[in-house]
Design a protein around this nucleic acid. Structure first.
Length: 490
RNA sequence: CGGGAUGUAGCUCAGCCAGGUUAGAGUACCCGUCUGGGGGGCGGGGGGCCGGAAGUUCAAAUCUUCUCAUCCCGACCA
C-alpha cells in the first residue's frame, strides 16, 4: 500500500498536517493563517453544531446575530479585556478602494478614512453588552440567554489547521442574570454541557476545571474549562465557560430594577467552543492509517463498497448495496454507497480508512451467494462476515459499540497519562514523558510564570474534583492544599 | 521583528555549483487494454513565460543585483 501519511512516531505534527489535508478536511488558503474548511471537514462541524445547538435550546437559550465589526471605542471600556486582545486585532480603517492612478490594480482611497476605526471581532462581549444595555431595564427582562454562531478573527503569529487559525468559527453564548448565584450556575451548566458533548459525541474524555489568574479570559472573574489530552501527550483546551461577574455590566452600564425598585448591575457569563474541536477529534483518536471518527459525528457512518468483475456482477452487487442502504437508513444510520466504477475496491478501502468512516461493508458475488456481507470496523480494524439478515440491527448496535470503544480507549490513555509529581526533579522527568502532571502549587502567579518560563508547561486547570490534601509546592516549597494539573499545551 | 531556508508540471522534487540540443522524474490527469475481495499491470498522450524585474553573455532555469512570496526556528499567543 502506498504510504500517504507520515506516522505519528516519525513526526506527530507532520502526521496531523498530512491527515487534515489527505482526509480532505481542510487546506491552507491564499490568505496567510486562514484555512478553507472543505466539505468533509465542514460536515463534521455541522454535526457538532447541530448537537450543541440542540443542547443549548434544550436549556432555554436562543440564537441571535451581532455584527462582525466593533467600534474601537467599545473595546477600551473594560480594561482587562482590551489588554488581553489588543495585540491580535485586525482593524478596518477605510471603506473604499479606487483605481491606482499608475494603472496597477486598485489602491486604498485615502479620502475614505473611517472616522472611528472598526475592530473585527476577536470575541463579541463589547458589542453585545453595548446592545444589552438597551434590552435590560427590569428584573422581568432577565435572564437573557443568547448564543450566536459566528466567525471571529485573532491575528495569531503561528497558525495550525483547526488548532489555531487567524479566522475561526465558533459559538459564543452571552447571558445576563439578576444574581451572582444564577450566573455562576449558568457558567457551570454550560461547562457540563460542553463536557457531556465532548465525551458522548467526540468521544474525548475531558477534565473540568478552573483556570488560574494567568490563564483566565480577559475580563472574567473565573474561567472554567474542559481540558483534553492528545495522543502526543500535549493538552488541548476544548471549551471555556466564563463567569464575568459584573465587569461588563459596569463597563457598559447595564442595570436593572429589582422587584424592590433598586437599581443593580446585572451578572454575566460567556462561553464558547470552536472549530478547534475538530482538531481535538483528530488528535484524540486517529491512527497511522488515517482518521478515526466517532459514529455520532461522522459525516456518514457506513460506507458500502460493491465488489464485482463482470457487468452483471456490478449490477447485482450494487442493487443489493442500495437495498441494504435503505434498511440502514430506516434505522437512522447514515450510509453512502460508493458504486463509482472509476476507482478500484482496494483504493476505496484505503480512502475510507483515511477518512475515518466507522464501518465499511463490502459486498461481492460470493456474499450474494452466501447471503453475507463483509463488515470492517475502523476503530479496531477487524473484519467479519455477517449474515445479511438483520444487518441493520446488527450495525446499529455495532455503531454504539464503536462509539463506546473509541471513548474508553481515549479514557484509558488519558488516565494512564495523569501522573503525580512530588518533587521538582520528578516534575521535570515527567514532563519529558508527556501527559498531565498532578502537582502541588503555591497558588501564586509568580511561581506559575517561573515554571512556564523554565519548562514551557502551564497549569491547564485546577480540577473541580480536586481533593483537599496538604502538600508543598514543587517549585517554591511553600504550603499548598490541593494539586493542580500541569502540561505542555496546544 | 531577528536567524535559517525555499520558489521549476495540479502535487512532491531533480537539474543550478562548472551557462550550450526540444527542461526532467515520481505522482496526479486523459485515452486504450488486461483487470477488479486492500491504494493494479502494460502501452500511448496532454500539461511549464523555471516566482517577478533588470543586468552580464553569442547563449541564462543555471551567473549578478534588486524585488515579491512562502516555509521552518525564535519572539508572540486566553
Amino acid at each position: 500500500m502506498a504510504k500517504v501519511l507520515t506516522t505519528r512516531a516519525e513526526n506527530y505534527a507532520q502526521w496531523y498536517n498530512d491527515l487534515v489535508i489527505k482526509a480532505d478536511l481542510a487546506e491552507n488558503s491564499a490568505v496567510r493563517g486562514c484555512m478553507v474548511i472543505k466539505p468533509y471537514g465542514y460536515a463534521i462541524w455541522e454535526k457538532m453544531q447541530a448537537e450543541l445547538d440542540r443542547m443549548f435550546k434544550e436549556t432555554d437559550h436562543v440564537n441571535a446575530y451581532f455584527p462582525l465589526f466593533i467600534p474601537k471605542s467599545f473595546f477600551s471600556k473594560e480594561a482587562n479585556h482590551v489588554e488581553g486582545f489588543a495585540k491580535e486585532c485586525a482593524v478596518v480603517t477605510h471603506y473604499r478602494l479606487k483605481n491606482d492612478p499608475e494603472g496597477k490594480g486598485v489602491v486604498v482611497d485615502e479620502t475614505a478614512k473611517l472616522e472611528e476605526e472598526l475592530i473585527i471581532r476577536p470575541t463579541s462581549e463589547t458589542i453585545i453588552w453595548n446592545t444589552y444595555k438597551n434590552w435590560i431595564q427590569s428584573y422581568r427582562d432577565l435572564p437573557l440567554l443568547i448564543n450566536q454562531w459566528a466567525n471571529v478573527v485573532r491575528w495569531e503569529m503561528r497558525t495550525r489547521l483547526f488548532l489555531r487559525t487567524t479566522e475561526f468559527l465558533w459559538q459564543e453564548g452571552h447571558t445576563a442574570h439578576a444574581t451572582e448565584n444564577e450566573a455562576v450556575e449558568e457558567t457551570l451548566k454550560i461547562l457540563n454541557i460542553y463536557s457531556d458533548f465532548a465525551q458522548e459525541y467526540l468521544g474525548v474524555p475531558v477534565i473540568k476545571g478552573v483556570k488560574t489568574e494567568n490563564e483566565k479570559f480577559a475580563g472574567a472573574i473565573d474561567t472554567y474549562c474542559i481540558e483534553a489530552l492528545m495522543q502526543d501527550g500535549k493538552a488541548l483546551q476544548a471549551g471555556t465557560s466564563h463567569f464575568l461577574g459584573q465587569n461588563f455590566a459596569k463597563a457598559f452600564d447595564v442595570k436593572y430594577a429589582t422587584k424592590e425598585g433598586k437599581e443593580e448591575h446585572v451578572w454575566a457569563t460567556s462561553w464558547g467552543v470552536t472549530t478547534r474541536l475538530i482538531g481535538a477529534l483528530i488528535m484524540a483518536h486517529s491512527d497511522d492509517k488515517g482518521l478515526v471518527l466517532p459514529p455520532k459525528l461522522a459525516p456518514f457512518q457506513v460506507v458500502i463498497v460493491p465488489i464485482y468483475r463482470k457487468p452483471d456482477e456490478y449490477e447485482r452487487t450494487c442493487k443489493r448495496a442500495h437495498e441494504i442502504k435503505k434498511e440502514l437508513k430506516a434505522l437512522g444510520i447514515s450510509v453512502k454507497v460508493d458504486d463509482r466504477d472509476t476507482h478500484k475496491p482496494g483504493w476505496k478501502f484505503a480512502e475510507y480508512e483515511l477518512k475515518g468512516v466507522p464501518v465499511r461493508l463490502a459486498i461481492g458475488p460470493r456474499d450474494l451467494e452466501n447471503n453475507t456481507v463483509e463488515v470492517s470496523r475502523r476503530d479496531n480494524l477487524t473484519k467479519d462476515f455477517i449474515s445479511q439478515d438483520g444487518i441493520a440491527a446488527y450495525l446499529s448496535d455495532l455503531l454504539d459499540e464503536i462509539q463506546e470503544n473509541i471513548f474508553s480507549k481515549a479514557l484509558k490513555f488519558r488516565d494512564e497519562n495523569i501522573r503525580e509529581a512530588n518533587t521538582w526533579d520528578e516534575f521535570l522527568e515527567l514532563l519529558d514523558t508527556g501527559g498531565f502532571i498532578s502537582a502541588h502549587w503555591d497558588g501564586t502567579a509568580e511561581t506559575e510564570k517561573a515554571i512556564q518560563e523554565q519548562t514551557k508547561a502551564t497549569i491547564r486547570c485546577i480540577p473541580m474534583d480536586a481533593k483537599q490534601e496538604n502538600g508543598v509546592c514543587i517549585k517554591s516549597g511553600k504550603p499548598s492544599n490541593q494539586r493542580v494539573l500541569f502540561a505542555k499545551a496546544y
